[in-house]
Design a protein around this nucleic acid. Sequence first.
DNA 1: GAATTTG
DNA 2: CAAATTCAACGCGAC
DNA 3: GTCGCG
Length: 501
Amino acid sequence: MAKPLSEYNRKRDFKITAEPSGAASGAQRNASALTFVIQKHDARNLHYDLRLELDGVLKSWAVPKGPSLDPSQKRLAVQVEDHPLSYGSFEGSIPAGQYGAGDVIVWDRGIWHPHDDPQTAYAAGKLEFTLAGEKLSGDWVLVRTHLKGSGDKERWLLIKENDRHARPASDYDITEAQPQSVLSGACVGNARPTPAPQKTAASVTLAGVQITHAERVIDLASGTRKLQLAQFYQSISEWLLPFLRHRPVSLLRAPEGIDGEQFFQKHSEHLAIPHIKQLDQRLDPDHARLMQIDSLAALIGAVQMGTVELHTWGATSDKIETPDLFVLDLDPDPALPWKAMLEAAQLTLSVLDELGLQAFVKTSGGKGLHLMIPLARRDDWATVKAFAKAIAQFMTQRLPERFTATSGPKNRQGKIFIDYLRNARGASTVAAYSVRARPGLPVSVPVSREELKGLRGAQQWTVANLQQRLQGLKGDPWAGYANRQRLSKQMWDTLGATQPQ
DNA sequence: GAATTTG
DNA sequence: CAAATTCAACGCGAC
DNA sequence: GTCGCG
Ligand SMILES: [Mn+2]
Ligand SMILES: [Mn+2]
């Protein structure tokens, strides 16, 4: 049943809106002279409001698509709160910020003749009636469906009966043919005289994905807009996708921009991220299904959902229990000068050289650097993590003034924490060429060993200047990355550690 | 951002 | 219909 | 057991 007039009054501030305040009409009208009105309302979504006078108020339904003269076209009509009779002649603009803000015109009005007792028929959920308006005529039926709409809103259907006023939709669309107000001749919505002027479209299609809120600024520091971030990711997709393909991915999303709420997302079961791949449940039986980005469309789909950062597992989905790389995440005390960070990286690389392991360096886009070591997918997570921990402890033992293998800010005072914990099953590390959700939108960028000494910071590249670097590159900074390496007994011995199990 | 619930 | 609310990870090590 | 971390 519809909400009463008090609901109408509660939703409106009559000091601000020009709409009439509501009071039921005391005088009981003659049942043969009931009025109806259809208002066209250019609110958030353009729709038509059908209002039938009954019991001194206007019973009201929102009809998203408006009436159709075609009896085969059933039009959804969501019942809304009763409106006062005086609302029937309201035409004008509801101010922004008010309930139902937007322009209203009286699209049609006249008399409705119920075929039966209207109170009884209304209560029964099936109103059959004849309209005598300026545009609409003939017999109509308004019938309540069993399905409730959102909340307690009742869903009805507005259907034209077959009579001499009926016309097939292919032949004639009355909302299209007669868009204007019957009071003023004014138009509203996309039927405006100059339909939606020169305003840039709010949504754009990129790589087959509709990007909504394309103009939303997601980073104040760089002024980057949502569409620009999507275009950036598209422009570097040939560099980024090889690091995303074939492995589980987690997303850091910030739909309102990096200064708004941020959250991590590891699965995509409830809401569909366009084109994203759902991985087999058996890969991680204790959790919801993991996801994977294998294509440009999926990447752009993720951006549409507000994704800024992409984090990947250190294993591929087809062999998920044996990592194909491990990470040494060098996290400096923020107070340390960049020079100390560079020296620490060189020292760690020297040890890896001693071990016979080739490592690949990337900026984190945050404070530190990431060393990535490709593996032959032979050892399990526990083994690989223990090995990374052994390196961290070995470095700390050798150079306790520079390094720590113990997490926590207190232990990191003046030092660099070698974060080996990224190498646990289920953990992830920001992918090479992922943007970071920080002011200026820095990017995690692979660099060659030769370039390392000249690095000026972990945020040297951002969405604004990465293109320039990539275009100027002579060769692949990570040449040889495809060479997978095995951990040997000799390496464990050198580190003074033993392989678990 | 999208789905769901509330008014 | 419009507005408000809800949800979108997880395990590890330090203490 | 809780907390902080990424
Ligand atoms: Mn309306
Ligand atoms: Mn780090």
